[in-house]
């Protein structure tokens, strides 16, 4: 595993479109929508504003159940804003506004009368910076979502173990579940945050540059975790690392802001984005000519 990863990285250093496409093609493509996990997630005409500043314009993207979609693009192109509109975290920023529809299993999450806390249980989120709750132990952190949303489960210990196993952290922390979350390394903290997001059994998991603060070893662990999780949920990952997008995703969306609001330029199966992008701007970006 390590060897192939290193050779992969060496190839990446040259950053030619063909080498990235090789990586993407080497991954077994999954047939989207074949699992019985609901019909997935669709966004229709998403716009976003901060005050009068129009930051995102008319994004239409479908995410089939059980797929991993990577969102790439230069900083400030609206990728993070876009995923924050999906689980309604966008509205926490003062002055924020939006337009469009986010359909989860066909129902608009912005429809009047929607219980926003239920939406966020169905659409989990992992943040850029690991943020375990400082006043809680490792075990309490994992189960914090249940307490926050006032859910009762009978088999807490089983759930705790299951989530930590799926996040790839169980073996490292099983003997110190009572220790504070802050005592873990950055990579372990981020996997703890993933475990915490899994405990409420979301249908969709949003990841906002989850590896940007981590070293390559931890990044690799989290990428493995993402691949394993994609069997049971829909994952959307924002990343600045194109090798990462090529390694983990089935589909890739390219966002760009050309002075005005950010737009989605192109979305396609990951191998196509990296081998034969339709738009020259996409090609320039993935080959490293700008951005």
């Amino acid at each position: 595993m390590n060897e192939s990863h290193e050779s992969e990285n060496k190839k990446m250093e040259t950053t030619t479109p063909s080498s990235l496409a090789d990586v993407a093609n080497a991954k077994v493509q999954k047939a989207p929508g074949t699992r019985a996990m609901g019909t997935g997630l669709e966004t229709r005409g998403i716009h976003a504003w901060f005050g009068k500043n129009h930051v995102l314009s008319d994004v239409n993207l479908d995410f089939a159940a059980g797929t991993v979609t990577a969102l790439i693009g230069p900083s400030g192109c609206g990728k993070s804003t876009f995923i924050r509109t999906i689980n309604r975290m966008h509205e926490f920023i003062p002055g924020a506004a939006m337009a469009g529809e986010v359909l989860l299993d066909g129902k608009d999450v912005y429809a009047p009368g929607t219980d926003v806390t239920k939406i966020r249980l169905q659409i989990g989120m992992v943040f850029q910076k690991p943020n375990p709750f400082p006043s809680m132990t490792i075990g309490e952190n994992v189960l914090s979502g249940l307490k926050l949303s006032q859910q009762k489960v009978s088999n807490k210990d089983e759930l705790l173990e299951e989530c930590l196993v799926r996040a790839g952290l169980w073996n490292e922390v099983k003997d110190r579940l009572g220790a504070h979350g802050g005592s873990l390394s950055g990579g372990q903290q981020q996997r703890l945050c993933i475990a915490r997001a899994l405990a409420v059994r979301p249908q969709v998991l949003l990841m906002d540059e989850p590896c940007s603060a981590l070293d390559p070893g931890s990044t690799l662990r989290i990428e493995e975790t993402i691949r394993e999780l994609s069997d049971t949920m829909t994952i959307i990952i924002v990343t600045h690392n194109m090798q990462q997008a090529a390694r983990v995703s089935d589909y890739t969306g390219f966002f760009l802001s050309e002075g005005g609001p950010g737009q989605m330029i192109e979305a396609a199966p990951t191998s196509e984005i990296f081998s034969r992008p339709r738009d020259t701007r996409t090609e320039n970006y993935v080959t490293g000519r700008f951005g």
Binding site: N87, M89, F92, T117, K118, R120, L121, G124, M125, F127, N131, F133, P134, S135, S144, G145, K147, L148, S149, Q150, C193, R196, A197, V200
Partner: peptide, 19 residues
């Protein structure tokens, strides 16, 4: 921390009280 609490399905009060 506030965002993490809300993103886990907590109401504002639960997030403030628990986190």
């Amino acid at each position: 921390l506030r965002e993490a609490g809300v993103a886990l399905g907590g109401t504002q009060w639960r997030t403030v009280a628990m986190i």
